[in-house]
Every structure is written in C-alpha cells, then in structure tokens.
Design a protein around this nucleic acid. Structure first.
Lengths: 147, 147
DNA sequence: ATCATATTTCCCACTTTTGCCCACTTTTTC
DNA sequence: GAAAAAGTGGGCAAAAGTGGGAAATATGAT
C-alpha cells in the first residue's frame, strides 16, 4: 500500500462534512479504512491520519515522561486538537468548527495527499503559503549563492 | 483502545457536576467505564484517571522509596487529594469544592484528553499556562519528538 | 435527642448536537 | 450510452449535554 498523493477540491457542507477522495481512501489498509484522527497541522491546515498511522504517533507520545514539564506541555498541545472521526457511508468525515476555523476553510477545501497523512487547506491560504515559500526560497538563494 | 485526546469546554453546574465528554468515555475499557479517581494535577488542574489506569499509578507509587524525602512528599501530595467518583446516568462526575478551588474553575471548564488521564482546567488559566511556557510549539515538537 | 441547614443522590425534562439514512446530481467505467 | 461509483445535500431519530426538583443522608447547634 502506497502513501497518499494527489489533490482535490471538494465542498464542505453546512454540517462540516467533507468527502475523503476515493483515490486516497484506496491507499489505506482495509482494516483501518473506517477511521481517521484529525488534528491541527503545521501552517494552518488540518491533518488527517489513518488510525493505524495515528497509533504509531501515539506510541511516541507514550514514550514521554508525564513527570517532565516539557513533555507534559508538548503532550497537551499535541493531543488537544486531535479527534477521532469515522467515515460515513459515503466516505465523508465531519470536522468540528474549531478546526475548520483554524484552517480558515469555508465552502471549499483543497485536499492534499501527503504520504502518511492527508491535508485540508483553504485554497486561497495554500496559494499564499506557496507564494511565501517561493519568496523565502529566492531570498535564501540570493543570500547563499549571490555573494 | 487508544488514549484520551481532544478537548471540550463544558459547564459546571451549581452542584459541581461536569460531564465527561462522550468521545473520552468511549476510550475507556468497558468494565472500568463507571468510575474515575480524581486528584490534583500538575500545573493547577484536576486529573481524572479511569479506575484501571489508577491501579497502574498505585503500582508506581508502591515502587517509590518511603525513606526518600521527595518520594514521601510526592506520595502525600498525590494521594491526599485522590478521590473515587462514579459517573451518574448522564455521564457526569461530581467534583468537590476543594479540588474545584485548587483548579480555579468556575462556570466553565476546559477538558483535555491527555493520553492516560483527563484534565479539567479553568480556560483562562490554561491560556496563561500556554503563554507562560517558554518554547513555542514547533520548537517543543522538534525538541521532544526528536526532529 | 431534635430540629434546622446543607450536601448528596436519584430522578426527569429540555435543548442542542450528532449519527444514520435516503435521494439527487455528477463523474467515471465498461 | 448505460451502469456503477463518487460527491452533495437534507431530514429525522437518537444521543449528548444542561439544569433543576424532591427524597435521602449528613452536619451542627440548641
């Protein structure tokens, strides 16, 4: 089974439901195909992990020391936004308001396959992100290569 | 069965009752789903352990050295405030005044799933806690999770 | 001991949210 | 071009969350 890839632009309905593209669902192991864990991603988007992948991440969290202050802080920040969601019969997940608002999504979402997880973006925000990255790249290139 | 995660903001009523979010109740083993042990947590919040998790904690405490001053202090602090509470028919627990006052909660509580236990916070206090943590999330993530 | 006050416990009622199901349109596949 | 699958939207029942009343139990003062 290969990683997630490709993109799609789907609509989010009034109940916060959005379909997981069939081609991405096909990438998941059959026994973990029902459930995702969604959470805040880096750069103002939503990450969705298939349940088996999430278990790997959880195992890393379990390795932390609950009596260590920094470990506690990370655990709290990390788990706070995570939420299990089950696909409905049409292959959709329901995303709660706080996450949708975090990602700034309304009406439509850009869905990206990104190897081990799927990302949901506001299309405009993603464009801006790309533009910003591009600018950074040029600055970097000038600095490093320009002399 | 996976660990606790996610968050919710629920109200505490005049009787000190607060609901345990259904999604968190669903994470518990069916036979331990009735009873929690609540106690003071780190950073001025309330910890709630499902009964089976609490037994693990007890085993850890039994492993401490009663001739070590710090171990004694920890044991006293931990056990002093610990209390068994049973869920009512609507999935709520009643928290006693001293604990509620320790956490500074009134009206609303922020409920966090944190792997092996659930935490109850005063929402404002939690914000202040996050703000007070020196490192930002990305730094923390890199540091704790090893890049 | 008795009464008054305060908790606690066990109900029930109400509102909001969620979960489940069905119907329709569009796209893909053969 | 027909059939199947994918994507979209909405209705309805069940569950979750909130609040409060009355009986039972405890607490404390007279």
């Amino acid at each position: 089974m290969s990683g997630f890839k490709g993109q799609a632009t789907y609509s989010i309905d009034a109940k916060g439901r959005i379909a997981v593209p069939a081609k991405m669902r096909a990438c998941m192991s059959t026994d973990a195909r029902e459930t995702f864990v969604i959470t805040r991603g880096f750069e103002e988007c939503i990450y969705a992990y298939p349940l088996d992948r999430w278990r790997d991440i959880e195992r890393e969290i379990e390795g932390l020391n609950p009596y260590n202050r920094q470990d506690r802080a990370f655990t709290r920040r990390f788990l706070r936004w995570a939420e299990e969601v089950v696909l409905d019969k049409k292959g959709r997940i329901a995303i709660h308001r706080p996450l949708i608002e975090y990602a700034g999504i309304n009406q439509n979402a850009l869905i990206l396959g990104s190897q081990r997880h799927i990302e949901f973006w506001d299309p405009q925000k993603f464009d801006e992100y790309l533009a910003a990255e591009e600018a950074d790249y040029e600055t970097l290139a000038t600095h490093v290569m320009g002399g």
